[in-house]
Simulated scan of single mutants.
Amino acid sequence: MTERTLILVKPDGVRRGLSGEILRRIEAKGYTLVAVELREATPELLSQHYEEHVGKPFYEPLVEFMMEGPTLAIVAEGNAVIEGFRSLAGTTNPTSAAPGTIRGDLGRDWGLKVMQNLVHGSDSEESSAREIGIWFPNL
């Protein structure tokens, strides 16, 4: 079953020049890029994207981090792309992410107040539909 997912190359990945490598890995896995756009996230967009975290202690540092620079927003499509990209990304913590994953190969813990872990991928069909609607309302 073909599905779509939202993938974000977060500001740390864009700043470090890793967008091309991350796109390469997505395409090498066989997924189709439906939309790719370099965006400056706004507080309004981020409050929608991270609505389930509003009020939590890490919310403000997370929003600050996501506004530090541009984010590469991607919609990718393919069979089981949601699960497949999350596997490709690796676990949330780059220190424990497996070698061969984006976070395992390219990420590390910088000792900052919020984990800068290069990428975001939707975790379900429901969140994918909601997140794509936020970042790409015309799709």
Score class of each variant (00 low, 15 high):
1 M>N: 10
3 E>C: 04
4 R>I: 01
6 L>H: 05
7 I>T: 00
8 L>C: 08
8 L>E: 04
10 K>M: 10
10 K>L: 08
10 K>N: 06
10 K>F: 06
11 P>E: 09
11 P>Y: 12
11 P>M: 08
12 D>I: 07
12 D>M: 09
12 D>K: 11
13 G>C: 09
14 V>T: 06
16 R>N: 10
16 R>S: 12
16 R>C: 08
17 G>P: 10
17 G>N: 03
17 G>M: 05
18 L>F: 08
18 L>Q: 12
18 L>K: 14
19 S>W: 03
19 S>C: 11
19 S>T: 15
21 E>N: 07
23 L>Y: 03
25 R>S: 03
26 I>V: 15
28 A>E: 15
28 A>H: 14
28 A>L: 11
30 G>I: 12
30 G>V: 08
30 G>Y: 09
32 T>S: 13
33 L>R: 02
34 V>P: 11
36 V>A: 12
36 V>G: 00
38 L>W: 04
38 L>D: 05
38 L>E: 12
38 L>N: 10
39 R>W: 04
40 E>F: 11
41 A>N: 13
41 A>G: 09
42 T>I: 13
45 L>Q: 15
47 S>N: 15
48 Q>D: 11
50 Y>D: 02
51 E>Y: 14
51 E>P: 11
52 E>D: 15
52 E>W: 06
53 H>Y: 01
54 V>F: 09
54 V>I: 15
54 V>R: 15
57 P>Y: 12
60 E>S: 05
61 P>I: 08
61 P>D: 11
62 L>G: 06
62 L>R: 09
62 L>Q: 03
63 V>Y: 07
63 V>M: 10
64 E>Q: 13
64 E>M: 06
66 M>G: 08
67 M>D: 06
68 E>M: 14
68 E>P: 05
69 G>S: 11
69 G>A: 08
69 G>P: 12
70 P>R: 07
70 P>I: 04
71 T>L: 11
71 T>Y: 08
74 I>C: 01
75 V>L: 13
77 E>W: 05
77 E>V: 06
78 G>I: 11
79 N>W: 09
80 A>T: 08
81 V>N: 09
83 E>P: 02
84 G>S: 11
86 R>H: 02
87 S>R: 13
88 L>S: 00
89 A>W: 01
90 G>S: 01
90 G>V: 00
91 T>V: 06
91 T>N: 00
91 T>E: 07
92 T>I: 01
92 T>W: 00
93 N>Y: 01
93 N>R: 07
94 P>D: 14
97 A>G: 01
97 A>S: 13
97 A>L: 00
98 A>Y: 01
100 G>I: 02
100 G>A: 02
102 I>A: 02
104 G>P: 03
104 G>M: 05
106 L>Y: 12
106 L>M: 14
110 W>G: 04
110 W>H: 15
111 G>E: 01
112 L>D: 07
112 L>Q: 14
112 L>I: 08
113 K>V: 10
113 K>P: 14
114 V>A: 07
115 M>P: 03
116 Q>D: 04
117 N>M: 07
117 N>P: 02
118 L>A: 06
118 L>V: 03
120 H>R: 00
121 G>D: 04
122 S>V: 04
124 S>W: 00
125 E>W: 01
125 E>R: 13
126 E>D: 13
127 S>W: 01
127 S>Y: 00
127 S>R: 10
129 A>R: 14
130 R>M: 02
132 I>V: 08
134 I>L: 03
135 W>Y: 05
136 F>N: 05
136 F>H: 01
138 N>V: 08
138 N>Y: 12
138 N>M: 10
138 N>I: 11
